[in-house]
Design a protein around this nucleic acid. Structure first.
Length: 276
DNA sequence: AACGTATCCAACCGCATGGCG
DNA sequence: CCGCCATGCGGTTGGATACGT
């Protein structure tokens, strides 16, 4: 092969490493407050920081960004982390998105240093009452100020995380199209949520869909899924803040809804080969 | 006080992913 | 379609601190 084989360094040769100084923090904060986030390589260069772009991004997102909480994880937050971890596994960024002000790195560290030990001492049995799904409240801010609220179900297979993941968004689109073509779905006050919606948290503009494995069988499975539809009535929370959905899952579980979803989700998990 | 060990957590590293030309 | 690049993510590392002997 060629002589310059190997991975190209992502950072300039002369860079600072290790802990960030106060001056570096100030420089980065000022630069981002003026120019905004993104283009981190240029941030590093233009701000005169001898740091690589990745490092700047991480420092900003984990410590400097306004609204970041540090330390003092409450028992409610801890409970939330435990539940979300059971639901989502080591997907720290997804977990962090549901804990306002907390970062994936902090949650990951907290898990590794505190919770993993705690849970080792108090293992959760497979027959425990932990939910196999969770519900969060999603607020869609539409044009002209009306807000729709939707209950989002997060499904986490207890099976190992798929090696490769594909999105189910396309499937959802197919269903939407089908519904609009002479289906029984009326456009009235009750909203219909297809089962594919259970996998999709559009809270972040489709950035964090829950996905299924692309083992080559998924497409056929998704086709068959059309027979499995679940209706979830939604309601309006005009007084709720957008961050409302981040509150504890334990408080959001409607026992009836949970039972319904649990049954349906078990069916689907079975269908997708995600049982156990 | 001195030393060894354990713990915490900020930062690093490499891989995956998505956008773009 | 392909390659490049920037960004995102999660596992790991290593320095600082706390604790035990």
């Amino acid at each position: 092969m060629v002589s310059n084989m190997g991975r190209r360094p992502c950072c300039p040769k002369e860079i600072n490493k290790g802990a960030w100084s106060r001056e570096e923090d100030d420089t980065l904060s000022k630069y981002v407050s003026i120019h905004g986030e993104g283009k981190w390589q240029k941030v590093a260069q233009n701000a005169g920081l001898k740091r690589c772009g990745k490092s700047c991004r991480q420092r900003w997102l984990n410590y400097l960004k306004p609204g970041i909480k540090r330390g003092d994880i409450s028992s409610d937050e801890e409970d939330m982390i435990i539940r979300l971890h059971r639901l989502l596994g080591n997907r720290w960024s997804l977990i962090a998105k549901r804990l306002p002000g907390r970062t994936d790195n902090e949650i990951k560290n907290y898990w590794n240093t505190n919770l993993s030990k705690k849970l080792k001492k108090q293992p959760i049995s497979s027959s425990s009452s932990w939910p196999s799904c969770s519900v969060s409240i999603q607020h869609n801010h539409h044009k002209y100020g009306n807000e729709k609220t939707k209950q989002i179900v997060h499904v986490a297979p207890q099976a190992p995380r798929p090696r490769r993941l594909i999105k189910v968004v396309e499937y959802n689109k197919i269903l939407e199209n089908n519904n609009s073509i002479g289906s029984e779905c009326d456009q009235g006050s009750t909203e219909e949520t297809s089962i594919a919606d259970f996998f999709i948290d559009i809270d972040h503009h489709h950035q964090e869909e829950l996905m299924v494995g692309d083992d080559g069988e998924s497409n056929s499975k998704i086709q068959k899924m059309e027979d499995h539809k679940v209706i979830v009535s939604t309601n309006s929370h005009s007084s709720s803040s957008p961050s409302h959905h981040c509150h504890l899952l334990s408080e959001k579980f409607d026992p009836n809804l949970e039972t319904l979803l649990d049954v349906e989700l078990k069916k689907m998990a079975s269908f997708l080969g995600l049982e156990n």
